[in-house]
Every structure is written in C-alpha cells, then in structure tokens.
Amino acid sequence: MDYALMMLAAATAGLLVALLITLVRAIAGPSLYDRVLAVNSFGTKIVLLIAAMGFLAGRPDFLDIALLYALVNFIGTLAVLKFFRYRNLGGASSGERKAETQR
C-alpha cells in the first residue's frame, strides 16, 4: 500500500512537471492552434492530476470533479475553435458561411 502511494506521489510530481512544460507551449505557441492544442492537453493532464490528488488525499470522490472537468474541457475546446473560425458562437446559420472569407 505504501509502495503504491509512493509511486502515486512520484507520478503526481511528474504530472506537475508535464503541466509546466505544457504551459510553456501554451504561452509561447506561435499560432492560435498551438495554444488551443496546448490548453486541451493541459486540461487532460488536469483531469489526471485531480484524480491522483483525490487518491493521495484518501478521498477518491474527487473523480466526479475530474469527469466534469473532462466534459467542460472538450466543450470549451470546440467552442474556442468555433468562435475563432466564425467569430460567432450562436445561431445555426453561422455555420453555413465560408471560412475562407474569415481569414
């Protein structure tokens, strides 16, 4: 048990380092899409971090929050992409415009 929790703590430390590296790419990314990709990857690692911290704290109920975070991360990525392609988030008719005119 102690061995597994020690490995979990080591994996959490590795996750924190990975989050730092991903944050560097999210800040320095040359294009918008690099940043969106980095933020999406950041959200995936945050899901892992919430689950691991829940196990470390002895309260695995945090997994509900991790599940919700995964859902919000996906919807948020798609919403950001839709906004930057069409400059509009609502209305079904906004999807029919050509993206080439919005460059």
Binding site: L8, A11, V17, I21, L37, S41
Partner: peptide
C-alpha cells in the same frame, strides 16, 4: 495489485512526460 498499480502509474507518468516534452520541442504544429 499494489505492484501492478505502481508499475502502471510510473509508466503512464513517463509517457505523459514524453508527450509534454514533444509538445515543447517539436518544430511544427
């Protein structure tokens, strides 16, 4: 189960680190 949990967690953390390092160092989107 404890040994398997430790091995899976360590290998998974290594893969997460490899992915993040690639996200940082690779030249192109």
């Amino acid at each position: 189960a404890a040994i398997l949990a430790g091995v899976f967690l360590a290998v998974g953390a290594i893969f997460v680190l490899i992915g993040s390092f690639g996200l940082w160092r690779l030249p192109d989107f």
